[in-house]
Amino acid sequence: MYRLSSTALATCLIVATLLIFPGIAYLNQAMSGSYGIATHQETSIDFTWQDIHGRNHQFSDWRQGPSYLFLGFLNCSQICPIRTHQVQTLWQQLNEQEQSQLRFMFITIDPQNDLPALREQMIDSQSAQFVSAELPRGQLAKLQRQLAEKSSFNDDLGEHSGHLYLISKEGKLSQTYTQRQLDSNKLLTDLKTLMHSK
């Protein structure tokens, strides 16, 4: 009898958690007036990354404005092309000055197959503000922990959450976009709010 009660209680707690947490995330969005999930993370996002020419950079060296981060792989036929298209659509809605203040960074989780020539063709050729990056394994693991990004690439099978992250000019995680389909007008509102804050 006691074991049954414990099992029933555990089941109720699990169900309640599954129902309550999405509700809290939705309320957080609604109260903050933002489209993405607003975060109040104080940890700075910073890492060393390598461009398609093999040069190393520091993420924090970019000071012109916000950055969008996306972790994926170019052989992905699901969320990766959708996310890239969403950012391109947003990009087209910006004026020239705003475009110069925004960076989109695609971070490969499959550097063995996402070779520099392919990355250049798919990402870097879009604009000077579109960059693809390869991170050392330790740096990638640290970034995944900071973003709570679940992604891995093992045995030719890539898995990742497909979230889009908006990072402030100061290097703080501002918004996380988890929906598969994103409204570019709402993305634009969040972006302009961040660009004109402070």
Results as ranks from 00 to 15, higher is better:
residue 190 D to R: 05
residue 110 D to M: 08
residue 156 D to C: 02
residue 122 M to K: 13
residue 92 Q to L: 04
residue 129 Q to W: 01
residue 94 L to N: 08
residue 113 N to C: 05
residue 137 R to E: 12
residue 195 M to K: 07
residue 127 S to F: 02
residue 103 R to F: 11
residue 122 M to D: 04
residue 103 R to T: 12
residue 110 D to H: 07
residue 188 L to F: 02
residue 162 G to Q: 08
residue 184 S to F: 01
residue 147 L to E: 13
residue 98 E to I: 01
residue 184 S to Q: 05
residue 123 I to N: 06
residue 185 N to E: 13
residue 145 R to H: 14
residue 174 S to I: 01
residue 124 D to V: 08
residue 157 L to H: 10
residue 115 L to D: 10
residue 123 I to Q: 04
residue 190 D to I: 03
residue 108 T to E: 11
residue 90 L to Q: 03
residue 192 K to T: 04
residue 129 Q to K: 05
residue 129 Q to H: 12
residue 162 G to P: 07
residue 151 S to P: 11
residue 187 L to M: 01
residue 131 V to I: 12
residue 113 N to V: 02
residue 123 I to S: 07
residue 116 P to N: 00
residue 195 M to A: 03
residue 138 G to Q: 13
residue 189 T to F: 04
residue 113 N to L: 13
residue 167 I to C: 10
residue 105 M to K: 08
residue 109 I to D: 08
residue 110 D to K: 13
residue 98 E to C: 02
residue 148 A to P: 08
residue 189 T to Q: 13
residue 121 Q to S: 10
residue 111 P to E: 07
residue 192 K to L: 14
residue 148 A to G: 11
residue 165 Y to S: 02
residue 102 L to G: 06
residue 142 K to H: 10
residue 173 L to D: 06
residue 197 S to N: 15
residue 144 Q to T: 12
residue 134 E to F: 00
residue 175 Q to F: 08
residue 149 E to Q: 15
residue 182 L to H: 07
residue 131 V to C: 01
residue 191 L to D: 01
residue 180 R to T: 13
residue 92 Q to V: 02
residue 119 R to L: 11
residue 158 G to H: 04
residue 176 T to D: 04
residue 122 M to Q: 14
residue 122 M to E: 10
residue 195 M to E: 09
residue 175 Q to R: 15
residue 160 H to Q: 03
residue 130 F to M: 02
residue 143 L to P: 06
residue 172 K to Q: 15
residue 149 E to A: 14
residue 110 D to S: 13
residue 102 L to K: 09
residue 115 L to R: 15
residue 99 Q to N: 15
residue 175 Q to E: 08
